[in-house]
Design a protein around this nucleic acid. Structure first.
Lengths: 201, 201
DNA sequence: ATTAGTACTGTAATTATATACAGTATATAG
DNA sequence: CTATATACTGTATATAATTACAGTACTAAT
């Protein structure tokens, strides 16, 4: 997507604030009036240019038919089953997304991961719960982390983390600790768990 | 604000989803076409009625000049400690509020209640968790409810609910069932638990 | 009994809007 | 030197859209 000129950006911002204020886009005449053009055609031509650069779509024949092509992908993805092999945030794993502005929990959250299995029930994390994961937050000993062991993604408590020994604990008496030697098995700590959501109790 | 009729609500929803989908409100003709009216005037008159009831404003002369009067500006309160005696939603119990538009869970939620104690740990509800409570949802046997027993507010599973015998269960082996005779003890089911939030795991 | 509200059809006029066409001027890239 | 892009004025027109007016029919309230 090419860069907008100063004037074009001015017009795009005008469209955005018009939508913000009134709830619908401006007409060509509105734009012309706001920016002091004496011809609505000036606005028309700017719109065409902005459309050509991909920032908006114009519906022909529809009044105020300007659609913002929001590039700003600040949605938080909800990850369902993670397909083995690929990255967690791969397209195919995304169940749906929610706008970040609707997120009332920590804004450190990079994605929500739907919990599979009962290995964390003793700390109140149940199957189908959504855990909020921060990729950047440094995983601390004793915190709950999202780990990938040999391409298998799992949620566990981090008990020990050394060069040649990592221990992950399932918070369920029926499971035993997972001991990993990172020089033998591939281990990636994908992130830390910072929140939890449960729908339809 | 008066209530909308079924048809009027249908039209309001149509406007909302049109805005959601395209970014601007529909025209009278759009509405007529969507709902099968043969005259755009049918839409016009509905819009006037909806405006009269306060749900929208219509800008005269402007195409698509329909402004949603955000009624949904009621914030969802987060209830901390419930002071004995008063209603749950009393001012002094409100820890803070969050805009309903930011709520990504069920929109049946009337308030969030901060959980005190460990009586529900076996179903993954921990101290300091926030449970989303619906006042209107009919409490079902087996569901988790917010109950008030002699002015004490508690969260428990509803096991039995008869005229002279109500059983509430703590989901924690260390607690025993609470048996109540509603003709002796004052019992109010305040709502049903429909969601759960946990911050800072 | 009558008024007000709901729920439409049908027609038509006015105005709002998109959009084509014809220009002018400046800047930049090949 | 010649396209191509930017940045406009000015005019005109087809059509999109609002909106008034005249009806019909049913329901609920005063």
């Amino acid at each position: 997507m090419k860069n907008l000129t100063k004037r074009q950006e001015e017009i795009l911002n005008l469209i955005k604030s018009h939508i913000q204020d009134l709830g619908f886009p401006p007409t060509r005449a509105d734009i012309a009036k706001s920016l002091g053009f004496k011809s609505p055609n000036a606005a028309e031509q700017h719109l065409r240019a902005i459309e050509k650069k991909g920032f908006i779509s114009i519906l022909s024949g529809a009044s105020r038919g300007i659609i913002l092509n929001d590039t700003a992908n600040d949605d938080i993805p909800i990850i369902g089953l993670v397909a083995a092999g690929g990255p967690i945030l791969a397209e195919e794993n995304i169940e749906k997304t929610i706008p970040r502005s609707n997120n009332l929990l920590s804004n450190e959250i990079d994605y929500y991961l739907r919990v599979k299995g009962d290995s964390m029930v003793d700390v109140g994390i149940f199957e189908e719960d959504l855990i909020g994961v921060s990729k950047t937050l440094n995983p601390k000993i004793g915190s709950i982390v999202v780990a990938r062991i040999n391409n298998e993604v799992t949620v566990k408590t981090l008990i020990e983390f050394n060069q040649n020994k990592v221990i992950l604990r399932a918070e369920n008496k029926n499971y035993s600790d997972i001991k990993i030697n990172p020089s033998i098995d591939e281990l990636v700590i994908e992130g830390s768990c910072v929140a939890l959501l449960r729908e339809s109790i």
